[in-house]
Design a protein around this nucleic acid. Sequence first.
DNA 1: TGTACATCAGTGAACGCGCGTTCACTGATGTAC
DNA 2: TGTACATCAGTGAACGCGCGTTCACTGATGTAC
Lengths: 207, 207
Amino acid sequence: MENAEKVQPSSIRKSGYHHGDLRAGLIEATRQLVEEKGPDGFSVSDACRLAGVSTAAPYKHFKDKTEMLVATVMQGMARHRENMLAALDGIPEGTPARVTALGEEYVNFALREPGIFQLKFGGYTDRLEDPSLREAGEGTFTIVLREVAACLGETDITPEVRRRGFVLWGFVHGLSFLLADPKLTEMGGEFELKPMLEDVSRRVLKD
Amino acid sequence: MENAEKVQPSSIRKSGYHHGDLRAGLIEATRQLVEEKGPDGFSVSDACRLAGVSTAAPYKHFKDKTEMLVATVMQGMARHRENMLAALDGIPEGTPARVTALGEEYVNFALREPGIFQLKFGGYTDRLEDPSLREAGEGTFTIVLREVAACLGETDITPEVRRRGFVLWGFVHGLSFLLADPKLTEMGGEFELKPMLEDVSRRVLKD
DNA sequence: TGTACATCAGTGAACGCGCGTTCACTGATGTAC
DNA sequence: TGTACATCAGTGAACGCGCGTTCACTGATGTAC
């Protein structure tokens, strides 16, 4: 068992005195650590260690710890958004299958990146408050609302569309938390994610 | 003056050298602080300060910080369970109204005690792992499953009952998180909680 | 072309802080006699 | 009944630790001349 230094993607570690793109490197280090130790286990010092940089270096790129986390979540939300849009690819317009696909990707993102997901949604007192985060979140929800509207035969996002979209969001959001914990998942018995999402989408979009 | 602490407005603070029931006092202090500063903002030192006791005192009653938190969550879950059972009071057996009432109480608990709710469910890496917590959680979920079974005309908790119950749980669970944040709640537009829960229960229990 | 220089992303040491936990101790209490 | 004593829930000081952040500094780099 070699206990040599962990191999890092070259984008994280620096090679010389200057890093090249330390900002990006720190965001990636932050992302990695948030996944590894959870949002609360994350520390600036850890990120510096991982990036191979002194603990003072981040302050050339970020105001403080919070700004590092916000930047990391922002990048995560961009991934989330892109993945959701990609999930719609090739599915006929106006079909519930599109809503299901969005829900599936929502849950999968939460399972794939539970740290980022919790960093965005798990907090309460320490919740990251940043206008850009809020805006990004609205943008993502709008993707869902557009599809819900199409399924209901609406061209606008009516109050009813918004209500149904919110219900679906609530569902996949809660499911994301339950599925993140094996002990909770177990309580649902044996089931497949996709059929469950299809069933729920159908029920909520019906009428 | 054996029951001096009962005379005081709060059972948290001690009156003499001996506290009376420091274990209970610390749990209450923990609960209060978890609500005030969030699960991550909580510290043993804070709880001691609030209880008016030295920082070493808790270790006469709890193994460590985690045990304090587990005890506090356990008590919260007992409240949760009792409230849910109370919510069923007077509602005719076998009706979806019972399921709705359980869901409403679930969400209300999360809104009333967001700190405890998150301490139980929000964690990931730092999630509290304790058999008793798991058992208590299963017990609470069983209350729901019993009602779902009744609505579906089943006497046992069949796989289908379990699946539907899980879906409903996912929904109220997600809703709890969304409603805990005014900015997220806003995205649902104008709506009333109870009708929304009634609508969703009906849709999920239908067939 | 080579060189002087401005820029600024890095360093490394230090800071004050609050944390969780341990230690030897003390004093309030209930009870046996 | 009063008293001696065991018990053990409290104290208060100390510990080692890692944290976020600041500071004066340095050295790599691009560019003007």
